[in-house]
């Protein structure tokens, strides 16, 4: 699995976006940060909680100059049907049917033949600044991901559980 500091592998894949098929290329994303979240499969029971969770928080991520991209090994038709099933998804769901992108990020589970539940945040230079993965049976926290995005955007030293409004840096803190 790639780690913070590694250059992010680029992609140019078919995606489902707002009920249509669209090409999605990392090079064409102009936002400050890019949040890539890999999830195992469409039409499953934990993934939709994450997919819809990120969709509900889309405005907040956009406000933080962050583009969200979901990726799974399903094809784009599946993504379209899945997104419709979930009531519409406002960010692109990338089709990575051969798992190439997941492999490039080192998050392809060869045993299960799916991508791990992995999250990457890329900075403006498209370097990885955050990387984490969860077991297949545990969903991610959208709130925590948003907190990390906000923390990264400050460019400051953010202590544990930092949230906007809380003092930066550990200097002068009593432990």
């Amino acid at each position: 699995m790639l780690k913070p500091g590694d250059p992010a592998p680029t992609f140019d894949l078919e995606s489902a976006l707002n009920g249509r098929t669209a090409r999605c290329s990392l090079g064409k994303i102009s936002s400050d940060l890019v949040l890539i979240f890999f999830y195992p499969r469409d039409f499953s029971f934990i993934c939709p909680t994450e997919v819809t969770g990120f969709n509900k928080a889309l405005k907040e991520f956009t406000a933080e100059e962050t583009t969200i991209v979901g990726v799974s090994i399903d094809d784009v038709d599946s993504h379209l049907r899945w997104a419709r099933e979930l009531g519409g998804i406002g960010y692109p769901l990338l089709a990575d049917p051969d798992g190439k992108l997941a492999r490039a990020y080192g998050v392809f589970d060869d045993q299960q033949k799916v991508a791990l539940r992995a999250t990457f945040i890329l900075d403006r230079k498209r370097k990885i600044v955050f990387a984490a993965s969860c077991p297949l049976n545990v969903g991610r926290s959208v709130i925590e991901t948003l907190r990390i995005v906000r923390a990264l955007r400050t460019g400051q030293l953010c202590p544990a559980d930092w949230t906007p409004g809380v003092e930066f840096g550990p200097a002068g803190r009593e432990f």
């Binding site: 499969r41 469409d42 039409f43 499953s44 029971f45 599946s78 049907r81 049976n137």
Partner: peptide, 27 residues
Amino acid sequence: KPYTVQEGLLDELCKEGLSREGAYRIV
């Protein structure tokens, strides 16, 4: 842990030849 059971059942139904979407709807 209903999610775990749902995911497990989904996999089993897919192994029996149902499409993922079909299995998902059944589960």
